[in-house]
Computed example of a mutant assay.
Amino acid sequence: MKKETRLEALSAFLKAKRAEIKPESIGLPAGSRRRTQGLRREEVAQLAGVSTTWYTWLEQGRDIKVSSNVLDCISTALQLNNDEKDYLYDLALETKTEISNVKNDHSDLSSSLKRILAELTYCPTIITDRHCHIVGWNPAAAYVFLDFEQIPSQQRNLIRLLFERKEFKSLAVNWEQFVKGFLAIFRTYYGHYLGDEWYNQFIQEMSASHPEFKEFWKESQVSKAPEMTIEFRHAKAGKMLFNLTSLQVQGDIDLRCSIYTPIDETDTENKLKRLMKKVSYEY
């Protein structure tokens, strides 16, 4: 990532987080005369114990020196969670992670991962790499989402598919929440792999092609493993409710398992069983 791009990302993140804080939450009057959403820069600077000028320069994306101690204070002032704090550190301190070759061939998955996919019979599961390319899935995922085998491997990017394929938009009732969860994961990779120019090219392309992506990306949400409830309206199975759990796979290559677990109090698992049996029978 070029220095200018990194500093622009840092600026956008700080502005977004500052705008999220309600003045009354820290004992300040909301006031009708506030022209900015959230806190003012001078208020963040005061909370962090730094000068307003220095914080303004930081938020403007100027190339200035920062320390871990000061970033800790800013993180506290902006009420950042651990994932957001790590992202701030990645951008502000220009932490670079060694980039290994990314494989996106389903056959390259380890035998243990293939076994896990097979065992999660009625939990749709997708495995993605650090670019959010889909590198593995189980039959349940193909039944609920779409048959990824029919999509050329180079086009199996989950973020791209979420915006381009009508199957996903019509499937997820809370599509916006669904997408933002994966974008939050994607942003953690973006900050972690500063040396990988692929991210900037992808973000520019998606922003130009999909206004919704551009708007969601501006929100600067960060989460390594968001957990959420997803409601699907499946064309053949009807209403289905899943809990989404995202797990990082330890190893040489950054892989992630996104597991959709049927919610116990619903008939989702039975619907999935019938769907898989019906479709298998049709074939």
Rank of each mutant, 00 (worst) to 15 (best):
S246E: 14
S112W: 13
L91V: 12
R187M: 13
C123R: 10
A237G: 04
Q204E: 15
Y283R: 11
Q150N: 09
Y199C: 09
A45N: 04
E98S: 06
V66R: 09
L39K: 07
E98A: 10
H234N: 07
V70Q: 13
E4G: 00
C73D: 05
R156V: 07
H192A: 03
E227W: 03
V144H: 00
G49L: 11
F13T: 12
T95N: 15
F216R: 04
S207I: 08
M228I: 13
G49A: 03
D105K: 15
D254W: 02
T245W: 02
I116R: 02
K169Q: 12
R6N: 15
E119P: 00
K85S: 10
L161Y: 01
V144E: 01
L117V: 04
R165T: 12
H131L: 12
A142S: 15
R62A: 01
D72K: 14
A142D: 13
E212L: 14
L158T: 00
R18V: 04
V135C: 05
V66H: 08
D254P: 09
V222G: 01
A92F: 05
K239N: 13
I253M: 13
F186N: 10
L71T: 01
R35N: 04
E215H: 12
T97R: 10
A184F: 10
L244D: 01
G191M: 08
I253N: 03
S107F: 05
R156W: 06
T76V: 13
A92C: 02
S67R: 08
S51Y: 09
T245E: 14
R115D: 09
E231N: 13
G61L: 04
L161G: 09
S111I: 13
L71P: 02
T128K: 14
A16N: 03
S246P: 02
P23E: 03
E42N: 00
T95A: 07
E119W: 09
A142R: 10
H192M: 09
S112L: 11
P29H: 14
R115P: 00
G27R: 06
A142G: 12
K17T: 00
A16F: 06
D83M: 03
E8H: 12
G49E: 03
E20H: 09
A12F: 07
L146K: 06
E269S: 12
D86P: 01
K65H: 15
S170V: 04
E42T: 00
R130E: 04
I151K: 06
R130L: 01
A141Y: 03
F163H: 11
S51K: 05
S170T: 11
F186P: 01
A172P: 00
I21T: 08
